[in-house]
Amino acid sequence: MWLNENENELRRDLQGVASDLRWSAVELLRIAEQLRLAGNDVDAQATKRLCELFQGDEQRLMGYADEVKAKIISRAKAQ
């Protein structure tokens, strides 16, 4: 089923933000490891919790993008 221009834009936006969250989580994991190696376990654990939140948000956004593709979620044409 074909998506209209607005739905394609919505899907791309959702995928883009999900990708940004994925990249951010990777970077935060790198920072968490540096904190751990520096002996700052409290901040390392807090940073890892942020990564888990980002990963959950990424999955949710990708699910929304899949729903747009399946026409479960749509965006009306702008007037």
Rank of each mutant, 00 (worst) to 15 (best):
Leu21Val: 03
Trp23Phe: 13
Val68Ala: 08
Ser74Asn: 12
Asp13Gly: 10
Ser24Val: 04
Val26Leu: 11
Gln34Tyr: 12
Gln15Gly: 02
Leu28Lys: 05
Ile72Tyr: 13
Ile72Phe: 14
Val17Pro: 01
Glu9Thr: 11
Phe54Tyr: 12
Leu37Met: 11
Leu10Ile: 08
Val17Asn: 06
Ser19Val: 08
Cys51Gly: 06
Trp23Cys: 08
Glu27Gly: 05
Glu9Pro: 00
Asp57Lys: 04
Lys71His: 14
Arg49Cys: 05
Leu3Cys: 02
Trp23Gln: 14
Cys51His: 04
Asp13Gln: 15
Ser19Met: 11
Leu3Ala: 03
Glu52Pro: 00
Glu67Gly: 07
Ala25Tyr: 02
Gln59Glu: 15
Arg36Asp: 07
Leu61Pro: 00
Ala38Ile: 01
Leu28Phe: 09
Ala46Arg: 13
Leu14Val: 02
Gln15Asn: 13
Glu27His: 09
Leu50Gln: 07
Asn8Phe: 12
Arg11Ile: 07
Ala18Trp: 09
Gly63Glu: 15
Ala44Arg: 00
Asp43Ile: 09
Tyr64Pro: 00
Ile31Trp: 07
Lys69Asp: 09
Lys48Ser: 10
Glu7Gln: 11
Glu7Asn: 10
Ser24Lys: 06
Asp13Phe: 14
Asp66Tyr: 15
Leu61Met: 08
Val17Ile: 12
Asn40His: 11
Asp43Ala: 12
Leu35Glu: 07
Lys71Phe: 13
Leu28His: 08
Glu58Ala: 07
Trp23Asp: 12
Leu14Gly: 01
Asp20Gln: 13
Val68Pro: 00
Leu28Cys: 04
Leu3Glu: 06
Gln45Asn: 10
Arg22His: 11
Leu61Lys: 02
Met1Ser: 13
Gly63Pro: 01
Arg12Trp: 14
Val42Cys: 06
Leu29Val: 04
Ala46Tyr: 11
Ala18Cys: 06
Leu3Lys: 01
Asp43Pro: 00
Arg30Gly: 04
Ile73His: 05
Val17Ala: 09
Arg30His: 08
Glu67Tyr: 14
Asn4Gln: 10
Leu37Gln: 14
Leu35Tyr: 09
Ile73Ala: 05
Phe54Asp: 02
Ile72Cys: 09
Gln45Trp: 06
Cys51Asp: 04
Glu58Leu: 01
Ala18Phe: 06
Gly56Leu: 06
Glu5Arg: 10
Leu14Ser: 03
Gly16Ala: 09
Asn40Val: 03
Lys71Tyr: 12
Arg36Thr: 01
Gln55Leu: 08
Asp66Gln: 13
Ser24Pro: 00
Gly39Trp: 00
Arg30Lys: 10
Ala25Met: 02
Ala46Leu: 13
Gly39Met: 00
Asn40Pro: 00
Leu29Met: 08
Glu5Gly: 04
Leu35Arg: 03
Asn8Lys: 15
Gln55Phe: 04
Ile72Asp: 12
Ile72His: 13
Gln34Asn: 11
Gln34Asp: 15
Ala25Val: 00
Ala18Tyr: 09
Leu21Lys: 02
Ala38Tyr: 05
Gln59Trp: 11
Glu27Cys: 04
Ala18Gln: 06
Cys51Ala: 11
Arg36Glu: 09
Glu67Asp: 15
Glu33Ala: 06
Asp66Cys: 08
Ala70Tyr: 11
Asp20Lys: 11
Arg11Thr: 05
Glu52Arg: 06
Asp13Arg: 14
Gly56Asp: 14
Ala25Arg: 01
Lys71Leu: 13
Glu5Asp: 13
Asn8Tyr: 14
Leu61Glu: 05
Ala18Asn: 04
